[in-house]
């Protein structure tokens, strides 16, 4: 039997096994919650995983539309990028698909005639994994960007003092508009 036929026949069990592997990267108590709590708003993480993993698989074995794949990856990785995983754990779950698929191939079918297709499948998984790396990095960079924005946008606790530059800049804008050149005095509380 060709690999594609096997995959088509076993699609649901592959997706389920893959999803379970994803859940199993959490503590068993958490995994139980992620898997079983149905309401999308009570269980946003489990629901996002469930919603993304099927279409992701279909896209890999189907058209391999990169944008669609990226979207599915984003749904999963955006969450895992802020959880307690090191990078390889966060995206390792995508590489695992190779193993998942091998598990559903009956051993009698496993032979040279399937290798070429398997090779192509693996290559697609690799491409997905590389995309996952990009998405992961984009999420992590976003976090740092947000951290930076957060610090820039408001007066910050810099070295034991508040930096009031934000309001000062704002005030300066108005005074310049009115043509006032008045200097600002340092209004921060003086240390000792």
């Amino acid at each position: 039997m060709a690999l594609n036929d096997i995959i088509e026949k076993k699609r649901d069990s592959i997706v389920e096994m893959w999803l379970n592997t994803l859940f199993s990267t959490y503590h068993p108590k958490t995994a139980q919650f992620l898997e079983n709590k149905r309401n999308k708003f009570d269980n946003p993480v489990g629901s996002a995983f469930k919603e993304a993993i099927g279409p992701l698989f279909d896209e890999i074995v189907g058209d391999f539309d990169q944008e669609k794949i990226r979207q599915c990856l984003d749904e999963i990785i955006r969450i895992r990028a802020v959880q307690d995983f090191i990078p390889s754990q966060a995206i390792g779950i995508f590489v695992v698909l190779k193993d998942v698929v091998r598990k559903v191939i009956p051993s009698k079918e496993m032979g040279p005639e399937i290798y070429e297709e398997l090779f192509i499948f693996d290559a697609k998984v690799d491409r997905m994994a590389l995309m996952a790396f990009d998405v992961y990095m984009a999420c992590r960079e976003r976090i740092w960007e947000i951290k930076l924005n957060d610090f820039k946008k408001r007066p910050i606790f810099a070295e034991g003092q508040m930096c009031l530059s934000y309001m000062l800049r704002r005030g300066l804008k108005h005074r310049q508009k009115r043509g006032e050149v008045e200097q600002f005095t340092d209004i921060r509380p003086q240390e000792n």
Partner: peptide
């Protein structure tokens, strides 16, 4: 925090 982190 549990929902978002998965940390028991």
């Amino acid at each position: 925090f549990f929902i978002g982190s998965g940390d028991p």
